[in-house]
Write a protein that binds this DNA or RNA. Structure first.
Lengths: 132, 132
DNA sequence: ACGTTAATGATAATCTATTATCAATAGTAG
DNA sequence: CTACTATTGATAATAGATTATCATTAACGT
């Protein structure tokens, strides 16, 4: 039977509370704050398990290892900060993507990744720029 | 001094004629039709070289190794066929992505990947569906 | 509290993609 | 044509991410 361990709870909690997709190492670091001595293999194992239980989903990015987020309630996309490398959620979704398709093509899904600087990093950049 | 070899020419030709981004193995296969005995290391070497010369660019996809395409003249996106795994170019680009951003965020770039079935694979699927 | 066994931690092994090595080959300047 | 050396092909090595192994630990039904 499935057991409720501190490790599993810490990993699940990290993902449910983060509010954004986390990398394996982000999950590892956060869960270690709860469970000293946590091993990275346990993180990988529980990520797979939580995915099977459909509590979390894998988020694939171009040119990067996947991140993990709480199973989303609605369709959404992501924003990647080029400075702090944090991924955040974007609620809205552009319209009319189907019209971009060539004749005869069938559209089933779409991935959109916006990239730039998050609010925090934008603020820091601006404060540097404003110095004389 | 830089030399013009059959291998380099075959690799360049494959990419310039393809009209769509190619994986390393696609380049390898196409160039082998021109140059028997071509080695995979030569493909990797020349992809890097052509990238440095800015004749080709790397195309990163979520959850896949990169592909390579002729250095594009205009901004564009891609369509990935879930059936034949071929990547093709999409000319247009949705408007108003900036409006999707939360307050304080700075948008610099965006990646869009449409997924579904290309015209060829859509046709095949439909012809199966139409059989009694 | 006990016994069973799922889960864990440490780390070796694996996997896939890419790069390094090096002897042999083949462009090309003269 | 010759000499020089960039380039190649075969493959060993590397890199990074993930999975397997296995002895030990700790849930939890009884």
């Amino acid at each position: 039977m499935k057991r409720g361990t501190h490790q599993r709870n810490a990993i699940r909690k990290a993902l449910l509370n983060a509010g954004r997709p986390l990398s394996v190492n982000e999950v590892f670091a956060l869960a270690q704050n709860e469970v000293a001595g946590l091993g990275i293999a346990t993180v990988y194992r529980n990520l797979k398990a939580l995915q099977l239980e459909e509590l979390i989903v894998q988020v694939d990015l171009p040119g990067q290892p996947p991140r993990w987020e709480k199973a989303p309630e609605r369709h959404h996309h992501h924003f990647l900060c080029r400075t702090c490398d944090k991924l955040s959620e974007i609620q809205d979704c552009p319209e009319g993507l189907r019209h971009l398709l060539p004749e005869g093509y069938t559209l089933e899904e779409h991935d959109i990744l916006l990239r730039g600087q998050c609010d925090t990093c934008t603020r820091v950049t601006n404060s540097y720029a404003n110095r004389k």
